[in-house]
Amino acid sequence: MSEGIKDRPELSEAAAQSRASVLRSRAESYIALSRHDAAIADLTESIALAPDNARAWRLRGESHRVVERYEAALEDFDEALKLEPDSAYALGSRGQTYAATGRLEEAMADFEHALTLSPDSLWILEAKADVLVDLDRLDEALGEHAKIISLNEDLAYSWVARGDLYQRMHLYAEAIGDYTKALSVEPEHVRALSRRGEALRMVDRYEDALADLSRALELDPDNDRAYGSRGAVLSELGDDEAALTDLNRAIELDSGYIWAYRVRGEILQELERHEEAVSDFSQALHLEFGD
């Protein structure tokens, strides 16, 4: 851990600047290793030694953001932007922080400013699209996703992100198309397989859905959402016992999985196992509404 500046009164200005630089560099490696508290400690000393370095404020703000110390992050990004008002990175990161705290209009203002400075920044475009979804401006969000994909069609994640939005809008054919594009880029993309399986279920293509969800579970055996979706598919295909096995596993992996309780309750009800069905429906109500 860094020694405090108070322990180094003998440092010359040149030495202080040199030490601050090394601390900033070490902090970046700590950040890459997800050791954010260590990064914050280094950056705090670096800022004490060289308070006019915007990068140090920005990096510390990013570490605060990642560990969800949002007010501290905002203070650091504000300082960084006083020193470098046109830093797209600091604006984008502050926008993400605003979004995380529900300050969506302020997030949008930061993203818009950042994109005037760096219009092809994929991560800022993605963050802006997410905020547009939160604002229920879904058509605009689709426009942002189209920009993202046009910048690089070889990123599976970008196709999946738009597919997820199509699915949210109940545009299942479009969602399936995007997940298929993602899988052409990355055939073992678990989320693309799982989400395409869910979209296929929604259009009653149960055998295709089963194939996708089973493959997703081969690749990620602890994927609770894939178990839940496959359980629903198996029920539609008439295999209630296999469906219950999957739903049991989904709930074992995530005891707060409301939808799985509801689906399991419906299967149990059809099997006339009403006490168990009542228990599942009651748990679903408790988790969603606090009953």
Rank of each mutant, 00 (worst) to 15 (best):
S255M: 09
Q283K: 15
E198K: 15
L171K: 15
M202Q: 15
E79F: 04
G102D: 08
Q17N: 12
W259Q: 15
A141G: 08
G92R: 11
E218W: 05
L104M: 12
E62T: 14
R201C: 00
A32N: 15
A15M: 04
E186V: 06
R215G: 08
A16D: 01
L285V: 13
R264M: 07
A56M: 12
D164S: 08
R191Y: 04
R103W: 03
Q269I: 02
L74H: 05
G197N: 09
D254S: 15
I267N: 01
A216G: 06
P119C: 03
H36D: 14
L83R: 11
E252A: 15
D42P: 00
V66M: 02
A41F: 05
L23W: 07
R273W: 00
L183I: 02
L43A: 09
G4W: 03
L219T: 10
V278L: 05
V278H: 03
R24F: 06
A38G: 10
R94F: 03
A109G: 02
P187M: 10
L115N: 03
S214I: 11
L268C: 04
D178V: 03
R215P: 03
R168M: 11
D139G: 05
H170R: 09
S282Y: 01
A182I: 07
K181R: 15
D224T: 12
K181S: 14
H286V: 08
G231W: 02
I149C: 10
S282W: 01
D120W: 06
A226Y: 00
N53S: 14
D178R: 14
D208R: 01
A284Y: 06
V190A: 03
G95F: 02
R264K: 07
S93Q: 15
L244H: 13
L271N: 13
E153T: 14
